[in-house]
Design a protein around this nucleic acid. Structure first.
Length: 111
DNA sequence: ATTTTGACGACGT
DNA sequence: GACGTCGCCAAAA
Protein backbone atom coordinates (compact mmCIF):
# COMPACT_ATOMS: atom_id res chain seq x y z
CA UNK A 1 0.00 0.00 0.00
CA UNK A 2 1.33 3.32 -0.86
CA UNK A 3 0.44 6.34 1.05
CA UNK A 4 -0.87 8.54 -1.67
CA UNK A 5 -0.74 12.06 -0.53
CA UNK A 6 -2.59 12.95 -3.67
CA UNK A 7 -5.96 14.20 -2.82
CA UNK A 8 -7.02 12.24 -5.86
CA UNK A 9 -6.78 8.97 -3.97
CA UNK A 10 -8.26 10.55 -0.91
CA UNK A 11 -11.43 11.19 -2.83
CA UNK A 12 -11.61 7.55 -3.81
CA UNK A 13 -11.36 6.48 -0.20
CA UNK A 14 -14.00 8.85 1.05
CA UNK A 15 -16.34 8.07 -1.82
CA UNK A 16 -15.93 4.38 -1.17
CA UNK A 17 -17.00 4.76 2.45
CA UNK A 18 -20.28 6.42 1.59
CA UNK A 19 -23.03 4.17 2.97
CA UNK A 20 -25.78 2.95 0.70
CA UNK A 21 -28.89 5.01 0.55
CA UNK A 22 -26.87 8.11 1.30
CA UNK A 23 -25.44 10.83 -0.84
CA UNK A 24 -22.85 13.50 -0.29
CA UNK A 25 -21.71 16.61 -2.05
CA UNK A 26 -18.44 17.41 -3.73
CA UNK A 27 -17.91 20.32 -1.41
CA UNK A 28 -18.40 18.15 1.68
CA UNK A 29 -15.74 15.74 0.49
CA UNK A 30 -13.45 18.56 -0.49
CA UNK A 31 -13.77 20.06 2.94
CA UNK A 32 -13.13 16.70 4.54
CA UNK A 33 -9.92 16.44 2.56
CA UNK A 34 -8.90 19.86 3.73
CA UNK A 35 -9.25 21.44 0.34
CA UNK A 36 -12.26 23.34 1.53
CA UNK A 37 -13.54 25.16 -1.46
CA UNK A 38 -12.03 23.16 -4.26
CA UNK A 39 -15.05 20.98 -4.77
CA UNK A 40 -14.22 20.84 -8.47
CA UNK A 41 -11.24 18.65 -7.80
CA UNK A 42 -13.45 16.05 -6.18
CA UNK A 43 -15.49 15.64 -9.31
CA UNK A 44 -12.35 15.54 -11.31
CA UNK A 45 -10.89 12.84 -9.15
CA UNK A 46 -14.04 10.82 -9.52
CA UNK A 47 -13.67 11.24 -13.22
CA UNK A 48 -10.68 8.91 -13.04
CA UNK A 49 -12.41 6.54 -10.65
CA UNK A 50 -13.61 4.40 -13.51
CA UNK A 51 -10.10 3.22 -14.27
CA UNK A 52 -9.58 2.10 -10.69
CA UNK A 53 -9.41 -1.63 -9.91
CA UNK A 54 -12.10 -1.08 -7.31
CA UNK A 55 -15.65 0.07 -7.75
CA UNK A 56 -16.30 3.58 -6.63
CA UNK A 57 -19.91 4.53 -5.85
CA UNK A 58 -19.54 7.85 -7.53
CA UNK A 59 -23.26 7.87 -8.16
CA UNK A 60 -23.67 8.70 -4.48
CA UNK A 61 -21.88 11.95 -4.99
CA UNK A 62 -23.97 14.85 -6.16
CA UNK A 63 -23.59 18.56 -6.06
CA UNK A 64 -24.66 20.74 -3.17
CA UNK A 65 -27.95 21.30 -4.87
CA UNK A 66 -28.73 17.58 -4.73
CA UNK A 67 -28.63 17.54 -8.49
CA UNK A 68 -27.14 14.63 -10.39
CA UNK A 69 -24.67 16.77 -12.20
CA UNK A 70 -22.32 13.91 -12.94
CA UNK A 71 -24.88 11.65 -14.50
CA UNK A 72 -23.52 12.49 -17.87
CA UNK A 73 -20.23 10.83 -17.01
CA UNK A 74 -21.66 7.42 -16.34
CA UNK A 75 -21.95 4.71 -18.90
CA UNK A 76 -25.57 5.64 -19.21
CA UNK A 77 -27.00 8.92 -18.08
CA UNK A 78 -29.89 7.22 -16.35
CA UNK A 79 -27.60 4.75 -14.63
CA UNK A 80 -26.81 7.16 -11.82
CA UNK A 81 -30.44 7.74 -11.02
CA UNK A 82 -31.23 4.06 -11.19
CA UNK A 83 -28.41 3.19 -8.85
CA UNK A 84 -29.55 5.77 -6.34
CA UNK A 85 -33.14 4.65 -6.51
CA UNK A 86 -31.97 1.10 -6.18
CA UNK A 87 -30.38 2.06 -2.88
CA UNK A 88 -33.51 3.75 -1.64
CA UNK A 89 -32.69 7.27 -2.73
CA UNK A 90 -35.57 8.83 -4.56
CA UNK A 91 -34.59 10.89 -7.54
CA UNK A 92 -36.92 13.13 -9.46
CA UNK A 93 -35.95 15.17 -12.46
CA UNK A 94 -32.26 14.51 -11.77
CA UNK A 95 -32.75 15.83 -8.28
CA UNK A 96 -32.42 13.86 -5.06
CA UNK A 97 -35.57 13.95 -2.97
CA UNK A 98 -35.21 14.37 0.77
CA UNK A 99 -31.68 15.40 -0.01
CA UNK A 100 -31.19 16.73 3.48
CA UNK A 101 -32.38 13.42 4.85
CA UNK A 102 -30.09 11.22 2.80
CA UNK A 103 -27.18 13.62 2.89
CA UNK A 104 -24.10 12.02 4.39
CA UNK A 105 -21.45 14.38 5.60
CA UNK A 106 -18.05 12.71 6.19
CA UNK A 107 -17.08 15.46 8.59
CA UNK A 108 -20.16 14.77 10.64
CA UNK A 109 -20.82 11.05 10.43
CA UNK A 110 -17.21 9.96 10.67
CA UNK A 111 -16.67 12.05 13.68
C1' DA B 1 7.04 26.22 -17.59
C1' DT B 2 2.32 28.13 -19.21
C1' DT B 3 -2.44 27.55 -20.37
C1' DT B 4 -6.82 25.27 -20.15
C1' DT B 5 -9.97 22.58 -17.99
C1' DG B 6 -13.16 20.80 -14.80
C1' DA B 7 -18.89 15.60 -12.17
C1' DC B 8 -18.61 22.88 -7.70
C1' DG B 9 -19.76 26.59 -4.48
C1' DA B 10 -20.53 31.04 -2.90
C1' DC B 11 -21.81 35.56 -3.88
C1' DG B 12 -23.69 39.43 -6.70
C1' DT B 13 -27.11 41.20 -9.73
C1' DG C 1 -35.45 32.79 -7.30
C1' DA C 2 -33.08 32.60 -11.83
C1' DC C 3 -28.97 33.93 -14.01
C1' DG C 4 -24.07 35.64 -14.19
C1' DT C 5 -19.43 35.92 -12.49
C1' DC C 6 -15.63 34.90 -9.62
C1' DG C 7 -12.95 31.96 -6.76
C1' DC C 8 -10.37 27.48 -5.73
C1' DC C 9 -6.88 24.29 -6.67
C1' DA C 10 -4.92 20.41 -8.82
C1' DA C 11 -4.06 17.62 -13.08
C1' DA C 12 -3.74 17.13 -18.17
C1' DA C 13 -2.46 19.10 -22.75
Amino acid sequence: MKNDDSFFDRVYEVTRMIPEGRVTSYGAIARFLGLGKSARMVGWALNGSHHLPEYIPAHRVVNRNGLLTGKHHFRHEKLMQELLESEGVKVKNDQVLNFNNVFWDPNQELF
